[in-house]
Design a protein around this nucleic acid. Sequence first.
DNA 1: ATAAGGCTTCCAGTCACGGGAGGGTCAAGG
DNA 2: CCTTGACCCTCCCGTGACTGGAAGCCTTAT
Lengths: 130, 130
Amino acid sequence: MNIGDAAAATGLPAKTIRYYEEIGLVRPLRSDNSYRNFRESDVHKLKFLGRARALGFGIEDCRVLLALYDDDHRESGQVKAMAEEHLKRIDAKIADLQAMRATLGTLVRACAGDHRPDCPILEDLAADTH
Amino acid sequence: MNIGDAAAATGLPAKTIRYYEEIGLVRPLRSDNSYRNFRESDVHKLKFLGRARALGFGIEDCRVLLALYDDDHRESGQVKAMAEEHLKRIDAKIADLQAMRATLGTLVRACAGDHRPDCPILEDLAADTH
DNA sequence: ATAAGGCTTCCAGTCACGGGAGGGTCAAGG
DNA sequence: CCTTGACCCTCCCGTGACTGGAAGCCTTAT
């Protein structure tokens, strides 16, 4: 299976797959023409990676998750701990964004958005208080 | 005012201030010893930048916002349009994160997190369905 | 005179790729 | 047999917004 087929099968761009190989997340075989040759197991790993990334896990987390997946003696507590850690990060980001959203939303509502220069948004950004 | 004082006054790291100068967001004077010399107006700009960044505006947006702030003939509609555009991006990010959070939260709740290897989280990541 | 701390520039690294150059390979059609 | 077009390869640079560190100059206090 060439990289194009692997890309189609996994939904990942070929560039991303090459990158994953470069950093050692997958190790496809090579054909005589030096083309990468993906087995089903490689495709499976790539799909795993795609889903883990879609959940927001970083690359190094993905590496660990893959290793745990391959490890028959893993303890589910290890996985859960990682996931909870990641959940915390997500919640923190959401909170940050919601704070921004609240402030910015208020400013937008206060701004007439017309042809005049008066603008509460700029005034807030320039305010000495804060 | 040296860069250290400007940093203290604005809450921005000196490194960041140097970076802002490098990309032309501020243009502090230089003293004879080649130290940067910040006027009050520079500090004011830096504070403006810090607040715009804290609201999540990108650097190029900040550049435009600063220009609008300096422009007596601006129309508040321009600023509002940028802010609304940015609000959309924020909302999109929040939605993405909340989707992640929902999926990951469900998986975490389903995972025993004990010494056994069985793990719904890994099983989901490895699932052929999806 | 020296030591500490602040300032300078420049270079490299971050994260997870994406774009593009320059060139090899393969299958189908004329 | 030749060409065309679609693949594939490697290598290098760019992204955003900084951050860290090295090597060296400047200032102030002891």
